[in-house]
Design a protein around this nucleic acid. Structure first.
Length: 442
RNA sequence: GGGUCGGUGGGUGAGCGGCUAAUACCACCAGACUGUAAAUCUGGCGCCCGGAAGGGCUACGCAGGUUCGAAUCCUGCCCGGCCCA
């Protein structure tokens, strides 16, 4: 069987000179949508620059959707540039209209502070804040935005913004065209983001802002503002990456359970691993390029191997391993892999295998003597959200115990002692890809 | 401030007194086929009880009201679009 290689966190190049070829690399990985500076590639080869990307504190955990921006920053860092993470503690109180069809609900200060705190540690999983050469920096724009004086702001900053230009931004146009309304508050967002860029330009010499393609207008607002204020034509630049979608045009990370979170409390390493493992063939190689730090020629090798034997799913397994070890570390990755193997490869026997990390529910042993209700088991293991759903699944013949179907026609409605392996467990499955362990203890 | 149109399930969006837990599409889940893939076909998709038939509860911005019966009518409030000021 083909095994994906284990990838350890690679060596960040030392020295003040950047490693050349970053821009070409980003392009090859499908991570370049727009840039405001046609010479950006050369600039990145010649100078070690400071680059930033903003993150909205709309939740106390980052999610799958934040991964491309975050990993892109890490690519800059690995090529010798210096990344800044801007937590939008200030702008989060305003709400970015980009990509939204409705006015946002404003978050209160307390919530934002909690979210900022929650996200903080997650950045360190991907970025290096301790590098001696080019450590990443984290700042919160609340630190400067909340200090602004309204009159000064309108005089010094607002004067540089043309309403005509602001109105022509795609995010604004869409909201107006959709007749869904746009408050002055949200309309002002682009000025604040522009001001952020300007602030970072002054404080840290930050010359590039990266973001998703929906951020292009906001980023350009900053580029323009810096040009106006400093008179330098190419003082600051914009770079956006395309919105990463599945081959069927869907946003990533959509499951019945909701979004996929980086927080292991919300999305377990096993679920995270399984998500990537189940990526479709059409997407797997593309995701390897966009999401992992594997070298491109290494990915090409994986690809050709994968194309020869797609059913081995080398691309998916590599992807799952890379993504899980990036976010949850090697140990959790191995657990997830073992749990997956125990649940899926051994024809329903978990005995003797390390299954730590798999979804598992424990119940007292005497419950099984009288017969442990299957519906109960489905809900308890999280395989079904409600009794209704569990019944539905049973009716549809989706449920199996130890690999044996227990649909409505079999008449089996509970787990009995005979279903248990020697170690007191059984595997309960819904459909092809969702499985859990039920363990009975003394 | 005045007028007018609108606020429906995760999303878009029908319904406009009983036939409606609410059409359709998307997303999502499952069955068949497979490789824990895609495509395709099929079923499902508020919650609770039930093997099922069926029953109960909650839901169409919020709060009241009319009615045997309301997502649907009325009143007030909140929110949004458009027009006027």
């Amino acid at each position: 069987m083909l095994e994906p290689k284990t990838h350890t966190r690679d060596e960040v190049g030392g020295g003040t000179k950047p490693t050349a070829g970053l821009f070409r690399e980003l392009e090859a990985r499908g991570l370049v949508q727009d840039t405001s500076n046609p010479d950006l590639g050369r600039l990145l080869d010649e100078e070690s620059i400071v680059v930033y990307c903003g993150f909205d504190p709309t939740s106390d955990s980052l999610q799958l959707g934040n991964l491309v921006p975050l990993i892109t920053l890490a690519r800059f860092q690995r090529f010798g540039h210096r990344p800044i993470v801007v937590l939008g503690g200030g702008t989060g109180m305003i709400g970015d209209p980009s990509g939204r069809s409705d006015e946002r609900n404003l978050l209160d200060e307390e919530t934002i502070a909690r979210n900022v705190a929650g996200q903080r540690s997650q950045f360190a999983k991907v970025l290096d804040f301790d590098s001696t050469e080019n450590p990443a920096i984290m700042v919160n724009n609340a630190d400067w935005l909340t200090k602004l004086d309204l009159i000064d702001f309108l005089r010094d900053v607002g004067k540089s913004f043309s309403i005509n230009v602001m109105m022509s931004r795609e995010s604004v146009k869409q909201r107006i065209a959709a007749q869904s309304g746009l408050s002055f508050t949200e309309f002002s967002y682009q000025i604040l983001q522009a001001y952020d860029f300007f602030h970072l330009y002054n404080e840290y010499g930050c010359r590039l802002q990266v973001g998703g393609s929906d951020q292009y207008g906001n980023i350009l607002a900053g580029v323009d503002y810096i040009r106006r204020k400093t008179g330098h034509d190419h003082g600051a630049a914009a770079l956006t990456f395309p919105l990463v979608q599945s081959s069927t045009g869907e946003k990533l990370g959509k499951t019945a359970a909701g979004a996929l979170w980086l927080d292991p409390e919300r999305t377990s390493p096993y679920e995270w691993y399984q998500y990537w493992l189940n990526v479709s063939d059409a997407d797997a190689v593309r995701y390897l390029k966009s999401f992992t730090f594997l070298e491109l020629d290494e990915i090409s090798e994986i690809e050709s191997e994968f194309l020869k034997q797609p059913k081995e799913r080398l691309a998916q397994r590599t992807l799952a391993r890379e993504m899980t070890s990036l976010i949850h570390g090697l140990e959790q990755t191995q657990k997830a892999e073992r749990a997956s193997a125990a649940l899926f490869n051994s024809h329903g026997s978990a005995s003797g295998l390390a299954i730590d990390g798999a979804p598992e529910v424990t119940a007292p042993k005497d419950e099984v003597i009288s017969g442990f209700n299957l519906l109960n088991a489905l809900v308890r293991t999280g395989l079904a959200k409600s009794n209704s759903e569990a019944k539905r699944l049973m009716r549809q013949g989706s449920v199996s115990v130890n690999g044996i179907k227990v649909g409505a026609d079999t008449g089996k409605s509970s787990i009995v002692a005979a279903d248990l392996k020697d170690d007191g467990t059984c595997i309960i499955a819904v459909g092809r890809r969702r499985r859990a362990i039920l363990r009975f203890s003394d």
